[in-house]
Amino acid sequence: MSKDILKIAGLELESRILIGSGKFSNNALIPKIIEASGAQTITVAVRRFDFDNPNENILSYITKGINIMPNTSGARNSQEAVTIARLAREALKTDLIKIEIINDNKYLLPDNYETARACETLAKDGFKVFPYMNADLPSARDMQNAGAAAIMPLGAPIGTNKGLQTKAMIKILIEEIDLPIIVDAGLGKPSDACQSMEMGCAAIMANTAISSSENPILMAEAFKDAVNAGRKGFLAKLGTISNKAQASSPLTNFLRN
């Protein structure tokens, strides 16, 4: 089998797992998580860039050669997201940006309308835009038309570890949207990641499931295995599932007589 490469935003990735960085007990864990998960891409909140305190600066801990995808955590509307994206580009010289626009600090659900607007502005400005969104087809189409590089629907509210609650909607996105679909937020177990990949998601993003585990490194490895298994299952094309045994008295045999 030839190498299974995810081509996205000018990157060629062998790993189909993206990891978050904001919830670990110690930044020193980050290189170990990167290694165990095999991730080649890590997201970092621009609000946490801290060049004055190198020991507390997440950026000091990211393994060389790993793609850093800044996110706009804290943005409440498209204008703030655009501002934060530009700060990120200035600081890191990267065009990658994950848009997070959240107006609801209880459930942390993204604002699709503002996100689509930010996609439009940032894509025009040359950014490779990865919008975090509520799994919804019309909004995903808006983001696609606005020039997004991928679509990142949530599986469940962020931080809940509740798994693929939006499965039916994500299936629709996979079918109808021509961009890679990366499930973000809510995946609580390796099996959730596996299921996402079997369905045809291009990649998954995990953060809380790994960081809130008692053994984050082992959990990162479990996610890697699950993503690989799910991806292979998808590539091998799953057999159809039948709810019934084959009928012993076929109803249409008479047509052949």
């Binding site: 946490r48 801290d50 507390e56």
Partner: peptide, 23 residues
């Protein structure tokens, strides 16, 4: 205080916001 937080297996964060004014 930072050392104390690290010892408890938590992470001190000095910066969790960014200057956006005037941009």
């Amino acid at each position: 205080v930072k050392d104390m937080i690290y010892q408890k297996n938590y992470q001190p964060v000095l910066k969790d916001w960014m200057q956006m004014n005037g941009r």
